[in-house]
Design a protein around this nucleic acid. Structure first.
Length: 511
RNA sequence: AGACCAGUGGCGCAGUGGUAGCGCAGAAGACUCUUAAUCUUUUGGUCGUGGGUUCGAAUCCCACCUGGUCUACCA
């Protein structure tokens, strides 16, 4: 247990730690501050590897650089050091001919994991490794705890797939800093996450969207079907909930007419279970565009996701597990009722009562409640019969109105709404509507949800009176779309669990 | 919340009832153009926690803790 190793170190670890603490004293004796304030570095590993890629083996230059990074490997008693910075690795060559006696003594006090700055000239060793022939060094941060294991070069990792440095997932999540130090793949995933978010902002900004911020503390959680976290404001002596979705606030902004296109990219909180695709706090983007309907949102979703994939990965064809997923637009569109009919031969639009629909669902061995309404039954049948088959990107369109209280009634079928959910790899990654703009209808839909809640549906949507008031001032025809960023990152980084794309996933406290 | 699986030095692992082992890391030394450097010697673990069965438990049983996978809720 990692906590135990921190608070009650076993003797092997404590021995290493005490040895290193002694080295702090030895450094102090030599007038070295092991935790200084700054270091004047002027090059990164990758910059040097690129600049001198054609320098022949055995060649030396007069070019002098200062680099800084973490010591990941030492050979020949410190004569060769693999120094890792955030861009890559470069070898440090420390020969007694080039370093004074005091510096050689300091070199002896360096451990794996220490952060050191080196200054010296560029050379390529006879064996072909680009190196800095050190003329001076500066301890930048002394590491007191050992790294999980020796860092191995990428080529060697390829040859020895079984030899990994940190595989214990609990340590990876609880001590992500250690995971980041030793696992290049972890670093790569989170750099890609950052890039994905950057590209989303870039794309939307180019399309004329502006980014806005709405509250995370709500007096009432609404805009989605989920149980909220509840907290308390002391000065106001008032309970607040963490938001489950930003939707209703964003549409208030659309009523206000701040901009025809807005988005918010931020954290939401849902007090639900934790598994490979759910974390209690997760990142979503919601965007709204005036004067368009859900058809436009489908095009936007496809273009946004495929463009981000192209810019981050250099391709729209993404390998996820055993599946090669082609994100090239346009994506398939299937109506919910049509896809159910395709898979079961049954057209639920033929059933005019919940009872008929429930009977049909039971024949298909889909578990339903006798209290379910027509729309809930249709959704459950869809989830069991159709959803698992949807690997390639697909918009499932036209959801039942009972389960879509914020979406506009379908222009051709008043039992349905103009809503779609985008499925990729079997997951819901986006949810979008022609937004419901009619305040009278919105009030009616909230009342239906309130009734469901009164009848025990814990996750029925809360009635937000002020939101209806906002609609009464007039919301233009609007298309809206929400997308789970974590799942998109999972898809684009081939990550099997959401914990691999959330830096510090929610875990139980260890006593 | 339920089912199943896992927990052995800092890390990665072996060990299915009879004296707790290996590799790396650590320490001491050798070696000064190495690449997971190499070579010699060596420290370190009450086997997740607590009970139980047994002459004897890392190993069998029970409970609990933490994690994982699946299922349910959910995105």
């Amino acid at each position: 247990m990692t906590e135990k190793t921190i608070h009650q170190p076993t003797s092997a670890l404590e021995t290493i730690r005490q040895t290193r603490i002694q080295k702090l004293a030895d450094l102090a004796d030599k007038g070295v501050n092991p935790y200084p304030y700054a270091f004047d570095k002027d090059a990164d590993a990758k910059f040097l590897q690129d600049k001198y890629k054609d320098l022949p083996a055995g060649e030396e230059t007069e070019d002098t650089y200062s680099v800084a990074g973490r010591v990941m490997a030492m050979r020949n008693s410190g004569m060769f050091i693999d120094l890792m910075d955030s861009t890559g690795k470069i070898q440090i060559f420390s020969h007694k001919e080039n370093l004074d006696e005091d510096t050689m003594k300091i070199l002896k006090l360096i451990d794996l994991g220490d952060i050191i700055g080196f200054t010296g000239t560029i050379r390529r060793t006879p064996r072909g490794e680009l190196s800095i022939k050190a003329t001076s060094l500066k301890v930048l941060s002394k590491s007191l705890l050992p790294l999980p294991n020796k860092q191995i070069s990428e080529e060697k990792k390829e040859q020895l797939k079984s030899h990994t440095t940190l595989t214990d997932v609990e340590t990876k999540y609880r001590q992500r800093y250690v995971d980041l130090i030793v696992n290049e793949q972890t670093r790569d995933t989170f750099r890609k996450r950052s890039l994905i978010i950057q590209k989303i902002r870039e794309y939307l900004t180019k399309q004329g969207f502006i980014e806005v911020e709405t509250p995370m503390l709500h007096t009432q959680a609404s805009g989605a079907n989920a149980r909220p976290f509840i907290t308390h404001h002391n000065a106001l002596d008032m309970d607040l909930t963490l938001r489950i979705a930003p939707e209703l606030h964003l549409k208030r902004i659309m009523v206000g007419g701040l901009n025809e296109k807005i988005f918010e990219l931020s954290r939401c909180f849902r007090n639900e279970g934790i598994d490979t695709r759910h974390n209690p706090e997760f990142t979503m983007i919601e965007l709204y565009q005036a004067y368009v309907d859900y058809n436009e949102m489908m095009v936007l979703t496809e273009n946004l996701v495929s463009t981000v994939a192209q810019e981050v990965l250099g391709t729209m064809k993404v390998q996820y597990g055993d599946n090669l997923i082609d994100l090239t637009p346009p994506w398939d569109r299937k109506t919910m009722l049509g896809s159910i009919k395709e898979f079961t031969g049954i057209d639920f639009n033929d059933f005019f009562t919940a009872e008929e629909a429930i009977a049909a669902a039971k024949k298909l061995h889909v578990p339903v409640e006798d209290t379910d309404n027509w729309g809930q039954v249709v959704e459950k049948v869809f989830e069991v019969t159709v959803e698992p088959t949807l690997i390639q990107p697909c918009h499932i369109i036209d959801y039942p109105r009972e389960i879509s209280p914020l979406a506009k009634i379908h222009r051709d079928n008043d039992r349905l709404t103009e809503r779609f959910e985008t499925r990729v790899n079997g997951w819901e990654i986006a949810n979008a509507f022609s937004e419901l703009t009619d305040p009278i209808d919105q009030r009616y839909r909230f009342e239906a949800q309130a009734l469901a809640k009164a009848n025990g549906d814990e996750e029925a949507m809360s009635y937000d009176e002020d939101y209806v008031t906002a609609l009464e001032y007039g919301l233009p025809p609007t298309g809206g779309m929400g997308m789970g960023i974590d799942r998109l990152v999972m898809l684009l980084t081939n990550s099997p669990t959401i914990r691999d794309v959330i830096m510090f996933p929610t875990l139980k406290n260890v006593n």
